[in-house]
Amino acid sequence: MLSELDINKIVLNPTLRHDINYDRLLSFIPKLNCESGRSKQEKVQQFWSGLHHDLTQFVANRKGFLRAHGPNDNDWSLPILLNEVKDIIQTLVPAQDHDMLEEVLDILWLMQQFARGMLDIEKLAGWLSSVLKTHCAPMRDKWVNNMCKELKRGHREKDIDELVAGMTSLLRVLTRRRSNVP
């Protein structure tokens, strides 16, 4: 599902590049009422449910979870999500900011901190909020503030539902094209 946002797929598609460059009225509307749309919606729901399950298992039995997945295993949902978020943000920020992005969103380091229970999600949420407000349209500021509040509240209250809601909001901020998109 997230692979559809892969910048390489977009860049290597000449028809899409042409349409983006020359069609001012171009818009992307997901087809949700067809079989493939329903299938995509199911996959999205499975991903978020999987993330919730993974985080619940981590909190319930950190040692057992880490034995099964390891702190750096990219086969579970959190590092997959963080890598996608990083890739998307990398397309938003200018090249001179990529080093800073690599430093702050060093997924290996973040996952090691997470595994040890030392990841400062509130600080990360604040940084993400700052970056997104700097590099995204001002109409997204309300969404960014909401995302930041959800992540901070989820971290403070150890509320997995709220953390997942914050991560869902983060991805929505990064993928929304205009304010009337749900």
Rank of each mutant, 00 (worst) to 15 (best):
M1D: 08
T134Y: 03
R67D: 01
T15S: 10
C136T: 10
S130Y: 08
S130T: 12
Q57F: 02
V173H: 04
K152R: 12
T56W: 07
L174H: 13
V181M: 15
L110C: 02
K133E: 08
R172V: 14
R67T: 03
Y22P: 14
E162W: 15
M167A: 11
E84Y: 15
L132A: 00
V173F: 04
N146Q: 05
S179G: 13
Q57K: 06
D75I: 00
D87C: 00
G117L: 06
F65R: 06
Q57T: 03
L119G: 08
N180W: 09
E103T: 07
D54G: 07
D161F: 15
R116T: 03
I107W: 04
M139E: 09
L16M: 01
K158F: 12
G154A: 08
L81D: 01
A60Y: 04
R156C: 04
G117W: 14
K86D: 02
H98F: 00
S130R: 06
L32V: 11
K123V: 08
F58N: 07
L92N: 01
L2P: 14
P79T: 04
V131A: 02
E122Y: 07
P94C: 03
A60V: 09
K31G: 03
L92C: 09
V85K: 13
K123N: 15
L81K: 15
G126M: 06
M1V: 13
R177P: 07
L170M: 14
K63N: 10
I7A: 01
V11F: 00
M167D: 10
L151I: 11
I89T: 05
P94I: 02
L78T: 05
R38H: 04
P94Q: 00
H18N: 11
I160M: 07
N33A: 03
N72L: 13
R172M: 14
P71I: 00
L51P: 11
D120S: 11
K43S: 02
L66H: 05
F65L: 06
V131R: 13
N146I: 02
T91D: 10
G37A: 05
L105S: 01
R116L: 11
A68N: 06
Q57R: 12
L174C: 08
S39V: 03
D73R: 03
T56F: 06
K31A: 05
W127S: 01
N146P: 00
G166N: 06
K123I: 13
M100Y: 14
I10D: 00
L12S: 08
K152I: 15
R62Y: 08
V85E: 01
K149H: 11
K158C: 05
P94G: 02
V85W: 13
L124K: 03
N8Y: 02
V93H: 04
R38L: 09
L32T: 12
G126C: 07
N13F: 02
E157S: 09
R153Q: 14
E103A: 11
I10R: 10
D106I: 12
G37T: 07
E102Y: 01
D54N: 13
N33Y: 12
Y22L: 13
T134P: 11
N61E: 12
T91Y: 12
I89W: 03
E150H: 15
W48D: 07
W48I: 06
N146E: 11
G154T: 05
I10K: 13
L132E: 01
H98T: 12
A115Y: 08
V173W: 12
N145E: 05
A137F: 05
L119Q: 00
I7E: 01
R176K: 15
L78V: 00
S77C: 09
A137M: 07
R24L: 04
